[in-house]
Each structure stands twice: as C-alpha cells, then as structure tokens.
Amino acid sequence: MKQIYTSFHEVVKDVTDGSTLMVGGFGLVGIPENLILALRDSGVKHLTVISNNCGVDDWGLGLLLQNKQIDKMIGSYVGENKEFEHQVLSGELEVELVPQGTLAERIRAGGAGIPAFYTPAGVGTPIAEGIEVRTFNNKEYLLQTALKADYSLVRAAVGDTQGNLIYNKTAQNFNPIIAAAGNVTIAEVERLVEPGDLHPAQIHTPGIYVQRLIDGKQEKRIEKLTLTQLA
C-alpha cells in the first residue's frame, strides 16, 4: 500500500525545481538527515522551505542553503546559521519569519483542512502589517492562513510499512503536523517494522498521512552539548 524505498536518491527524485517543501525538526533534532542530503545531491533549485529553523552552516537545511537551492524560507528562528544571514543581506534569499506557535498552527491547519484562523501572537508588532485584525471578547487577534506543501519530509524513530509513525522524545516537534500537511509525505525512519509490531494506541502519526517510507541511519548531531558534571 505504501511505497517503501531503499534509495534516498530515488525517494526524492521527483521533487522538481520551484517545489514547496516542509521539513520536520527543531534545531537539528528530528530532522530527516538523509532526505536533506539526497536533496542536496539532486541539485533541485528554487525551493520554498517551511521549517522552524534552517539548520547550521554544515548540517541539516544549511546544506541546501550552502548550495543555493533555497529561494524562500518560512520559519521562526534562523539565528544558528551564518550563510543564512549572508544570503538574506545579498538579496538571494527571501525570508518570512513567523511566531513559532503561529507557524505550528498554520501547518496544523493546512493538514486539517482549515483555511485560516485567528491568533493573538503578533498583535501590535511588525508582523501584523497588512494582516486583518479582529476583536473577540475585547481582545485583538490576527488572521493567519494555513500552509501546505508539495512534499513533506519527516523523521520518525519507528515506522511500519502501513506508514504509522512513532517519534522519540523531543524529536517529535513539528514532524507530526508536517506529515499531515504535505501532498506527498516522505518519512525517513530509523527502524522500519511490519504492521502489528507497533501498538495502535501509541502511534503519533497515523499511516494515512504518509505516502513513502525509507529507513536510514541517523548521525544525530548535537548542537549544544550541556552536561551535569559528576562531582
């Protein structure tokens, strides 16, 4: 029922220039590492990328930036990346900054068939410019529209061949909502199992949202290692 791939190059081969992609992850946690590497190698260009962050200079979505494959980035925090700054200042890269909760809800709405919603985040700030304001119960709210993607790229800890996914700890983050908002959703899983191996009550992303699966070994780079020292 689902397409199971063994080649990362094959699974992203039909992503064409000018596509809109959603990519799961928060910082470098929960990013589909191998799918991003395959996109870098494919050389696909003029991408619009929707993701909370944009990787670091030499990992994650930073790799696509380095290769100048991204024309527009929609995210909430892009401060970990020098190349990003350089491309914005030179006019090569367009950026739309969205409050993190608004970004999450716009993606959720996209997958849930809700075209727009009102949220208080950003009222009276620069991001409210040109946006409809409406008052409910004496409080102002901004109208925000849903986001959809041609391709959604997510990473899960385990997936079964029916497309059911389970994420590990804070690697969940944007992944489940992004999985639901893509026309084609590609899930990179650390472990691919048979139907029945996952407990149905513990599935985070029901298989209906996932079209393609591939398993891959994760490097899982740590951005900021912070430790409690043994006394």
Binding site: K220, K224, T226
Partner: peptide, 21 residues
C-alpha cells in the same frame, strides 16, 4: 529535568535553547 550526565545524553532530547537536557 537537569542537564544530563555524559552517559545519559540523548541527542533527541533538548530544550528550546537546543541544549541537551
């Protein structure tokens, strides 16, 4: 919780500042 001891570090477990926790 607190920051992890070295042997407890899980790359999938961070706070919003992207620090391992």
């Amino acid at each position: 919780g607190r920051f992890p001891y070295e042997q407890e570090v899980d790359p999938d477990l961070i706070n919003a500042g992207k620090e391992t926790v």
